[in-house]
Computed example of a mutant assay.
Amino acid sequence: MIGYVARRLLLGVLQVLLVAVGVFALTEALPGDAAVTIAGDYPDPAVIAGLREQLGLDRPVWERFADWLVAASQGDLGTSLVGPRSVVEVIGAAIGPSSLLAGLALALLVPLSTGLGMLAAHREGGRVDRAITSTTLGLYAAPEFAMAILLVTVFAVQLGWFPPTAIGGSLIADPALLVLPVLVLLLRPICSLSRLVRAGVIDAQRSPHVQHVRRLGLSPARIRFCHVLPNAAVPAVQQLARTADWLLGGVIVVEAIFVVPGLGTALLDAVSARDLPVVQGLALVFACTTVLVNLGADIAARVLSPASEVGR
């Protein structure tokens, strides 16, 4: 296990480096730069040239990237080009709302999807199974932005039960601001996870191992939670890792619709302003999150099912 983790971490470092190179190259390919954005709608070429020199944008691309890479390895992600704050401060201010939304969604996602999956698998092909399967298929087909707009229209505008956006409010002081964003974040993941749990439970119930413990006279509850569920959880754990990565990545569409000042909103603002240091810093956070979350999922899958080939 130690060797496996070490190999995955080394591969993860390489993946993060490739992401940094790709983001830098794509950002450089965008028309305009931070100097043009700062100069405004009626830019003066002399002013733009001065801003580029002041911001260091007149230096060669490879030189700027090398300096950033060396500084990033020491924990310094640079300073925002369009504001007085450091990149670490920008990310620190945005990571709180995103982490709160993601944490609440994950805390509700695991028990709800597990319960729905086990309930559907209890009587395969029955009315409850068909109802849950049909509902989850329909919800999964709907994109996040469409569900968000629908929920805002019905529950915020027409009924007035919840605030439509987070403008001027605090997510912690006013929990009502969290209801609609968290609900949108839950809809698709709960559909995919519950279907994976259902399929895993059905397969596990038919396995020779479970048939054997049934012959030993163990109680149905013990068989279900001690033998069926751990084996059924392996594919669900990996899907949960992808879901966690998606949530922690900022959920750009959801944050944009509900005006939540999280990582996704910070990324959109940085891209529109050509603020390269902030874009690079956020890309580094997203890449590291992806590597660590998927590594944790593979380790959990190997622990739950050591005989499987997961992660090999």
Rank of each mutant, 00 (worst) to 15 (best):
V5E: 04
R7E: 00
V19A: 12
L30H: 06
P31W: 14
G40A: 02
A49G: 15
R52N: 07
V61M: 12
S73E: 10
T79W: 00
G83R: 11
V90W: 00
G92K: 12
I95E: 07
L101H: 05
L104T: 05
A105G: 04
L116D: 03
A120V: 09
R123S: 04
R130N: 14
R130L: 14
L151A: 15
V152F: 12
V152Q: 14
A166E: 04
I167L: 13
G168T: 03
G169E: 02
G169R: 15
V179A: 06
V179Y: 00
L187E: 02
R188V: 13
V201P: 05
P208T: 09
V210K: 09
V210G: 12
V213G: 04
G217H: 01
S219H: 10
A221R: 09
V228P: 00
V228G: 03
Q238S: 13
Q239H: 04
A244T: 00
L247P: 01
L248R: 02
G249D: 02
G250A: 06
I252H: 03
G262Y: 10
A270P: 12
A270S: 15
V278E: 01
V279S: 05
G281A: 12
G281V: 10
L282A: 07
L284D: 06
T289Y: 05
T289A: 15
T289R: 08
V291D: 03
P306Y: 00
